[in-house]
Design a protein around this nucleic acid. Sequence first.
DNA 1: TTGTATGCGTTATCAC
DNA 2: GTGATAACGCATACAA
Lengths: 346, 346
Amino acid sequence: MTTIRDVAEKAGVATMTVSRVINDSGYVSEETRAKVEAAILELGYVPNMLGPSLRFNQTKTLALIITDITNPFWTTVARGAEDAAREEQYNVILCNTDESAEKQDQYVDMLLKRRTDGILLVPASDSPEAVKLMRSQDVAVVILDRRLSDVDSIDSVRSDSFGGAYTLARHLTDLGHEHIAILSGPRNISTSVERVEGFTQAMLDAGLPHNLERVFWGEYNESIGFDSAWRALRQEPRPTALLAANNFIANGALRALAQAGLTVPADVSIVSFDDFPENINPSPFLTVVAQPAYEMGYRAAQLLLARLAGNGSEDFQEIILPTTLVMRKSTAPPKSAGVWTASSVL
Amino acid sequence: MTTIRDVAEKAGVATMTVSRVINDSGYVSEETRAKVEAAILELGYVPNMLGPSLRFNQTKTLALIITDITNPFWTTVARGAEDAAREEQYNVILCNTDESAEKQDQYVDMLLKRRTDGILLVPASDSPEAVKLMRSQDVAVVILDRRLSDVDSIDSVRSDSFGGAYTLARHLTDLGHEHIAILSGPRNISTSVERVEGFTQAMLDAGLPHNLERVFWGEYNESIGFDSAWRALRQEPRPTALLAANNFIANGALRALAQAGLTVPADVSIVSFDDFPENINPSPFLTVVAQPAYEMGYRAAQLLLARLAGNGSEDFQEIILPTTLVMRKSTAPPKSAGVWTASSVL
DNA sequence: TTGTATGCGTTATCAC
DNA sequence: GTGATAACGCATACAA
């Protein structure tokens, strides 16, 4: 391996002079510079960042710990974080936990050992342990997407889960739906909880009873989405509308509806959190509340980088981004409502 | 920051003893071990990998350079690579080039500076420069998915593009299609070229003319897929079937077909490379040739790790994995064939 | 404008 | 069983 010493020797100068040429720092005569550059080229010298990293305890590396790399929502977040990092010459290590707290803790451990400068964390559980550990070392941390109940005074970026769920539920109640089931994520993840709360509030505001049996806790994946929907559709009276707490749950629900021989929206309406980008879904059909995924990643990384540069604000920041309702073709007034109206007219 | 020296001091031992405890190497008395472990716990000591990395020029890091992180195909490859790496205590840095050779070169540069141990590269162009650079430094390299024309004797893993395209085209000609257009990727990417070749061979084998105007070179994305399909559908005679060279091109084509008011498969049949996983596409509809994405990533990483462990085979390896035809509902015999048959009977 | 010495955190080596 | 020392590659502080 070629080192800075080899280059110095070949160019007949000291290592410091080579360092000055590489980093464009300090004074170097044109003549010397040319000699050094020739030597670098000839030897194919590539500087070793590990030296400075060790010396200055700065790796120019961020990590993004997400819960599901197969979900386009998260890869979009990753793109945002990546773009922000690139602007400051930082690189991003992407870590995928599959919603496993154990995997998450393994990653955190590894990242600390590598002296990663900052970590963007989507917590796989509500436990504050990981954050406490990171804080005890000198890593900058931004919590992404989810809230941690036992941690305060921490930078965080998420979108408005309560508001998004309220909007979706309100859309359904406005259409006349009274029997609505929510297919949510885990009980111990703040986004799931807040989406259930938004749903509940909308039901109450519409003067409808809040029935706990219409709340299906589960996980943010297709398979559990299918199960939850399947159970919901066997309730009496059958729900006339479903609210899925994320895109994969919605897909599971769609599969359940198809398997049950029910048509959307004629038999059952369905709405969901999270949109799929057009390149992935060429004929979008679901009415959804879209989260600003790219912006979430971008803003979170920016916040982290500001901390690392020492020019963040004094106080911790809590950034909550708005969601956007995208109306499409998966909702209609409930059949029963129509029937009931007609018969009541007679 | 707590270092091994702080721990040694607190435990009243030498740094070497602490090192022995941490790494479970050499002899340490139970008594000493207990003292050291207590000190580690009390000080919250986390070892700094940068030290050994610098000393031994080994970072325990792989990189995976892919061309489109938003494509589920690539994230599945990434999962495979990640899983193989974890088994050997390696970590993976994921780099996304968006098919830009410039971005790719920036990443390679950065990875070399970081002394990444090995690189899995999906080349964004056919240029051999990046590989030459990597080889001149001592990084292990495996080429993934694509072939580089000016580089030989290099480990590589890809799937059978020619065979997959042949299977798809053959399926269409067997149904009676004679006017088939292929919507391919870039001219300078081997997978595009080989898919066109497989298509061409199938046409020839079916005794059909090979018309260069039916070959649409483009890019592996939705927007170009739309454009290519749009142009193809204006040809005379209009193609009765389309073969998309990847999943995003297929989605673009589907959008073009919808916009042109054409029904699949009644008006036009369509087949494609690459499947979407069920959690992303709940009602799969396209007949496709699926590549073993996870296995591609897994095998490629394994190959790389074997090289790093020094127990790879002498010769370079070239692994070509088979594809799988998944028949669904996007193909039917051509209308014109039906009409023509009927009238010829008269 | 250029050069010398030093130290970052860790572990292999060798000594005791 | 335990410890002292040197070395990895580089850039800062300081000297010339």
